[in-house]
């Protein structure tokens, strides 16, 4: 399982981060920039993985850190900065996912005359695939995975993303999403069940 390094580190409010936040709250622009740099890779990765569009991920990044900038003075150190930041980021991403569910547009996999193409493939290293059969299988698996992820509710999708890809604990995820650990657990269970049933014959 993938671990979000910044996520794990950010869960503890280190003295350095604490000092950066206080300096940024006093109006120190450099401190704010350093704070952004300490967390922005994991934020961007989360947005990219969820939305699979660099444009949308960029919008989430900008909106999230602008909200941080505007509201940092209200951060009272009563939770970790990472949790506080992720409350903002997950809210924005959930809104985007909900809008997509309503519009049913911009799917990650698009149909073309050459078969289904993942919109993100152009950004991936095109590893030369020696075995065409294997390549076809991989492509089908990818397509199924995308389909399975699309079928999750935005909230299930988010909990799965935060647990599987960002390596966050369910208790922490519950705190970020304004819900209980138990509810996050149920979401994760439903998400894996749904994917398991869609991908059953592939794995």
């Amino acid at each position: 399982m993938a671990q979000g390094a910044a996520g794990a580190a950010g869960a503890r409010l280190s003295p350095q981060v604490d000092a950066l936040i206080r300096a940024a709250q006093r109006g120190d622009q450099d401190a704010f920039e350093q704070l952004v740099r300490a967390y922005d890779q994991s934020v961007l990765r989360l947005a990219m993985n969820l939305l699979r569009s660099p444009e949308d991920a960029r919008d989430v990044y900008q909106e999230a850190f602008l909200r941080v900038y505007r509201n940092l003075h209200a951060f009272r150190f009563d939770c970790s900065f990472h949790t506080w930041l992720y409350r903002i980021v997950t809210n924005i991403c959930l809104d985007q996912l909900r809008k997509r569910k309503v519009r049913k547009e911009e799917p990650a996999v698009v149909e073309t005359s050459d078969g289904p193409i993942d919109r993100m493939e152009s950004f991936e290293e095109d590893a030369a695939e020696a075995d065409p059969e294997r390549s076809m299988w991989n492509r089908q698996l990818k397509q199924r995975i995308e389909g399975a992820l699309e079928d999750l509710t935005p909230r299930e999708r988010m909990v799965f993303e935060l647990r599987h890809y960002q390596g966050l604990r369910l208790r922490n995820i519950g705190e970020m999403l304004g819900t209980s650990e138990e509810a996050a657990k149920n979401c994760l269970f439903r998400a894996t069940q749904k994917m398991r049933s869609v991908l059953g014959d592939f794995v």
Partner: peptide
């Protein structure tokens, strides 16, 4: 997903 090269820098500059 890997973050596309330059996207992170682009985001930072934009912000």
């Amino acid at each position: 997903q890997e973050i596309p090269p330059l996207l992170l820098e682009d985001c930072r500059d934009g912000l």
